[in-house]
């Protein structure tokens, strides 16, 4: 079961300038009762988006409710995705329409979950992150996975980002880990005989 391929993402972005955004904020636990992967986007950041859990009362000061900001890239401050291991957080961000998340620091489990869903986590330096936050709402970013570069298009400022070559190959080609593991069955069976 391949995933959507990731290569170049060129888009405006939504700046969520908050640190330590935990997965309980990304998708509160009461929305984890589904048994499929679909439809989580409507509850993305639910309690920051709406007053009293009421969809007719969007909170004006929350960035997703600000029509000036749009795009397929979410930019957040450090330690994004900490807390619960719920993959529903990555599903919700993906389902909402984001294809990449940019931060200066990701929590480990979230990062893995994102990669397993073709959602690209891009780790940049704190300085570069602050430069992105200083852009106006019309600004665009270009993320080139193959070249491992992220560019602020208006200024041309570019930074390279790290990703291990295995994961990069997976994303560029839409492969997922489970296909690889299933193809490694012989090795696993051999390992079990001596384990």
């Amino acid at each position: 079961m391949g995933k959507a391929k990731v290569d170049i993402i060129h888009s405006r972005f939504v700046p969520l300038n908050m640190e330590n955004v935990d997965t309980d904020q990304i998708i509160p636990a009461r929305f984890l009762k589904a048994t499929t992967r679909d439809g989580f986007g409507k509850n993305l950041f639910r309690d920051w988006r709406y007053e009293s859990d009421d969809e007719s009362k969007p909170k004006a000061d929350f960035i997703l409710n600000n029509n000036n900001f749009t795009g397929s890239i979410l930019v957040a401050a450090k330690n994004f995705g900490c807390g619960s291991s719920r993959e529903h957080a990555a599903w919700a961000i993906d389902d909402y329409g984001f294809r990449a998340v940019v931060s200066s620091f990701f929590a480990d489990i979230f990062k893995n979950n994102a990669l397993n869903n073709g959602l690209l986590p891009v780790t940049v330096s704190e300085e570069f992150l602050q430069k992105i936050f200083q852009q106006d709402s019309e600004a665009t970013l270009t993320i080139n996975l193959n070249e491992q570069k992220i560019t602020i298009d208006a200024t041309g400022e570019t930074e390279t980002f790290e990703i291990n070559s295995y994961k990069k190959t997976c994303l560029l080609n839409g492969y997922d880990d489970i296909d690889y593991l299933l193809s490694s069955k012989e090795d696993i069976l051999a390992f079990e005989t001596t384990h």
Binding site: S85, E87, N112, N113, N116, D177, I178, L181
Partner: peptide, 22 residues
């Protein structure tokens, strides 16, 4: 350690995970 649902599927299917040493 804790894992996401895609990884739960990997373990169910192969009893293995792809992991980088921390």
């Amino acid at each position: 350690f804790g894992i996401g649902t895609s990884e739960v599927e990997m373990v169910l299917a192969t009893q293995c995970l792809l992991q980088t040493k921390p």
